[in-house]
Design a protein around this nucleic acid. Sequence first.
RNA 1: GGGCGAUUAGCUCAGUUGGUUAGAGCGUCUGUUUUACACACAGGAUGUCGCAGGUUCGAAUCCUGCAUCGCCCACCA
Length: 900
Amino acid sequence: MSEISKAYNPSEVEDKWYKEWVESGCFKGEADKSREAYSIVIPPPNVTGVLTMGHVLNNTIQDILIRRARQKGKSAIWIPGTDHAGVATQAKVDAYLRKQGKSAKELGREKFMEVAKEWRDKHGGIIIEQLKKLGASCDWSRLVHTLDDDYARGVLTAFVHLFKNGYIYRGKRMVNWCPKGLTALSDEEVIMRPQKSKLYKMKYEIVEKPGQFLEISTTRPETIMGDTAVAVNPNDERYRDLIGKHCWRPFPRAEIVIVGDESVDMEFGTGVLKVTPAHDPVDFEIGQRHGLPVIDVMNPDGTLNELAGPDFAGMDRFKARNAAAKKLEELGLLVAVEDYENNVGYSERGDVPIEPRLSDQWFMRYPKVDEAREVVASGKIKFWPSRWEKTYDHWLEGIRDWCISRQIWWGHRIPVWYRKGVEHPHLDNPEEVHVSVDGPSDPENWVQDEDSLDTWASSWIWPFGVMGWPDKEKEAELNLDYFYPTSDLVTGPDIIFFWVARMIMAGLEFMPGDCARRIPFKNVYFTGIIRDMQGRKMSKSLGNSPDPLDIIARYGADGLRFGVMNCAAQGQDILFDEQRVELGRNFCNKLWNACRFRQMSGDMGDNSSLKAIVNRIDVSKLDADDHAILANLEKCARQIEKDYAGYQFNSITQNIYSFFWNDFCGWYLEVSKARLSDESAKATVLAVQDLCIRQTLLMLHPFTPFISEELWHSLGYGKEGSYIQNECPDFENALGSLGLKIDENAAAEIEKLKDFVSKARALKAQTKMATKRDAKFQFIASDKSSADSVSQNSDKLKKLIGAESIDLIENSLDAPVVLTELGALYIDMSGAVDAKAEIERLEKEKQKFEAFVKSTQARLNNEAFTSKAPANIIEGAKKQLADTQAKLEEIEKLLKTYKA
RNA sequence: GGGCGAUUAGCUCAGUUGGUUAGAGCGUCUGUUUUACACACAGGAUGUCGCAGGUUCGAAUCCUGCAUCGCCCACCA
């Protein structure tokens, strides 16, 4: 136990405890078979990234879940790690090299990897330290990086397995090509953006009918040189007779065939489509169907090549667009140019339009697609909120093969070797192509494939890859059997396809056993996205993303965590404002000072256990306030239990906030002040306070780990070397078994006293007597129990409302009055009553009551209501009507007195 | 084109099976060095719950349509 300082200093407390936690090893996961396992794997952040508000939200939720699990006695582990982030990191290292006047190419692959690793080790890992600042209780002894040797073996094992089972193939296909990154991309990495462009209308002359033209629209005249046909819909009567005939491609001038293909939309433009099989996915398919030649007129970097002709060779694709239009015009073939808005696919990383390109790539047919749909549809894996299930299922329903090869070096190199000297090696011939994790035994005779894997084709095995798979010994050492499947996954819905769906398929494919053993996780919580106050996504270029570390420095990690969680409704986007964090900081300050006040109020008794605290309570000294606060505490704990089950984190913070601030500090501590002067009750009151604070700290701990740990120890709840994260927050049964029975009705009586106090204060304010601490009140109780309640609580009430006396009287007075739940309360103004103001005030109140009486009577007179509504609703309405009518009578009586 | 969110106080948002007179924080106004906390305390003001229908004794809540904003998916050149 130590004395609590006047001001809460978060950074000091945070650093101290984090250090101790890590040193004590209390975050380490242990496979304790006698306890239920609980595990989370972190969505691995980019190793070279820095902490963003999105990470704060995401990781705070994970930390809450893991700490709560520890409190509930589960054997918990939160496995951390980082992602090598292929394309992103490659780009950063390339830029770094350029600055030094070097290039990746001249270094060569091996040297590049060395430099890149050095660069990663030097600039990477910052985010891990930042997560620690946030309080993340990961098992750091198990930090995994996707390029670690063990993990990489898992990645390659998955590849080899799928290859051997026919899920992986190589082929020349139409892929999304990033001309900036010079690599293929998956469909998911292409983002569609509406763009202002031009629609060029041109005409091609029909070979067999000189002088007759076909009018065609295109947005991409720069690909004309690659046209190998013109297509019309065979059902289109306008053109049906032209099918099989030819037209002139303007440049390079050549005859191209007119084909009929049903994919052509008759309604669009003139219903005639130019077909460029090398540069458009639809055109490619048409080309396949009609056996059209493929002319690739572009270089990988998006410039045109020799096949485009001397006028265009070497020219950038967008310059070539204008040049081609100009050339059409010169030839007299350009009919019109219209402004046009269409969707263009962009490379997410490169931020340039992607180029559909025919190239040799590796593809994966996804395994276990049907089962992946089934496990979510059947609830074996639950999504929170559940609406994402539909999105997930829809994607899987229309799933297409995954292009998994990338033309970059930073990543896992594809474990495929080709026999030297074999011109066209066949994938199914082991003499020509070797596929294995370790490579051929005679490497000198083989050449390894140059490509590396899509980053997501490495992170998709994350849930078991971090647990030693596929090495049996390592699996045992890392307790895969015990911790897999993981319990909860917390991530953003933006990677539902990239990562979540693929992990599910990977788990089902690579893990053994029945379905429940193979799924990678049981629950997926999708967070919202953190936006700025204008609703815009946080981004570096907008400069609207606050630095979480800066916020932690100013408000404390607990304040940040509490503030963010308080406004994060399940799966809803959050418009972030620093005021949220202010709320959290203020709450921490309130907590701090309430505990400080407790210390100042009297000697600390034995707080070492729940039992010890309850033993300090003298049941005969408990009054309604004690019962009420304990009842509220129980209610809060019950609500929280329910909220955890439904992943309603904002509701949890709101319940704790409201209980602690309003019920405990706002009322209980205040009434305690008067009772503490009664020596016979003091020990009991302090014990009740200790009990409430103890349970509050426990409930709060997952959200605000630092301050709760600090206060836990300074108030003597925990022994040195023990931590609040391992203390069970449940207490309901404990109270009962310790012989303490809570009077549930007490809370109702206290509500009336609260009403009495707040009305009395309002009366003082209205009569301009708010500052007087010695006001005199007279009170006409509405019944015997109300009279008892007021006289029994007289000391507390006088202190709370700043009164010298509250006299019980029998008859109405000619003085300002307020009607409370307990009866009529008058304030003595010694004749200085402003009758006009009083009348005005009473009239206003009268109107309010009258409106209520009228509507309630109407309801009760409605036969449909009385015959159909449940009894308790009807009874409630009747009682309220009676109460209100009584008040109304009282007011009318008073009005008469004033008006007289 | 299809799907999914959102629309409640000046601002940002809760409101989980339909049920008394719709809540919170911030902001705002009035007061307060009341011996834990001004990051506080007390009191006040502020809402035809997006619009239009429907179901019901009863709708912010359920149904239908519409509007506005946002997101995701989709090969119309």
